[in-house]
Design a binder for these strands. Sequence first.
DNA 1: GACTTATACTTGACATATCAAGTATAAGTG
DNA 2: CACTTATACTTGATATGTCAAGTATAAGTC
Lengths: 142, 142
Amino acid sequence: MRTLNPRGKTLVDLWLASELLSARIDHTLGAVHGIGYVEFMVLYQLAHSPGLRMRRVDLATAIGRTASGVTRLLRPMEKTGLVARDSSDRDARVSLVTLTPAGRQRLEDALSTMNELGQRLTQSVGDSQLDSTAAALAILRD
Amino acid sequence: MRTLNPRGKTLVDLWLASELLSARIDHTLGAVHGIGYVEFMVLYQLAHSPGLRMRRVDLATAIGRTASGVTRLLRPMEKTGLVARDSSDRDARVSLVTLTPAGRQRLEDALSTMNELGQRLTQSVGDSQLDSTAAALAILRD
DNA sequence: GACTTATACTTGACATATCAAGTATAAGTG
DNA sequence: CACTTATACTTGATATGTCAAGTATAAGTC
C-alpha cells in the first residue's frame, strides 16, 4: 500500500497530538473555569490585541472559525459578561468584540491552569526539542 | 497581565496550527475525495491495524473521539461502503469495523493528496526542524 | 453458580460548528 | 453621482460531536 511521506505524516501526527491534547485541556478548563478551549482562545486573542478589542471577522480568522461560528460562539459569552459588544465609528458594518474586566479576570485564572497543563502534558519532551517544535508550529500557523 | 510560560504557549501554538491547517486539509479532502479529515483518519487507522479491522472503542481512542461519536461517524461510512461491520467470536459485545476494498481504494487516493498537502503546507519548515517536530508530536500523542 | 462490577456499544437530548443566503454598509468605477 | 462589487455580520438548515443513560455481555468475587 502507498504510504505517507514524512511531511504528510507530520500533518497526521499534528492532528492526532492536537486532538488528544485538546480534549484533555478542554475538559480541565471546563471543570475548573467553566470555559472551553475555544472560549479560552477568544479571551487570549482579545487580551493580545490593541485596545483589548477586535472585529469579529479578525477574531474568526485568528482562531480558525467562520464568521458565523464566531457569532454563535460569542452570544453566550456576552450573556455571561466575559466579552461585550462595541461599534466602530469608522465602519457601521463592524461589531467589535471587547474584553470585559470579568473576561480579563477569567483569562488570568485560566492562564495559570494552562501553564500547569503545559508543564504536565509536555513533560516528556526536552527543552530544546520543544523550542524547535514551538518555532515550527508558529511557522505552520500561516 | 500574567502570561503563558513556554510550555503553555506551545499548547496554544499547537492548537492554532492544527485548527488552521485542519480546516484547509478538510476542505481539500472533501472537495477531491468526498471525505473529511476525520474520515480519512478512520481509514488510515484501519489500514494500519492487523487484519484491517478494529474494535469501535479502540478506534475511538485512536482518533480522539468518544465511542458515541464513532457510532455516528461510521454510520454514513457503512452506507457508502467505505467500512463494514463485523462481529467478534470472542466477545459478543464487540462490533468490529473493517476496511472494505472500496475504503482501501479511497484511502490510497487520499494518501497522495495528503502527501501533496504535506509538501505544500510545510514547505516553509526545514527538514531537520520538521523531523524534530514530528518526533515531539509523536511523544505528545500519549 | 449467583451477584456485583466493568466493558462495548447505541440512543436521546443537546452543544457547537459549517454553509448558503440575506441584510446592511463601504469601496471601487464609469 | 449612480451602479456594481466587496465586506461584515446574522440567521435557517443541517452536520458532527458530546454526555448521560440504557442494553447486552463479560469478568471478577464470594
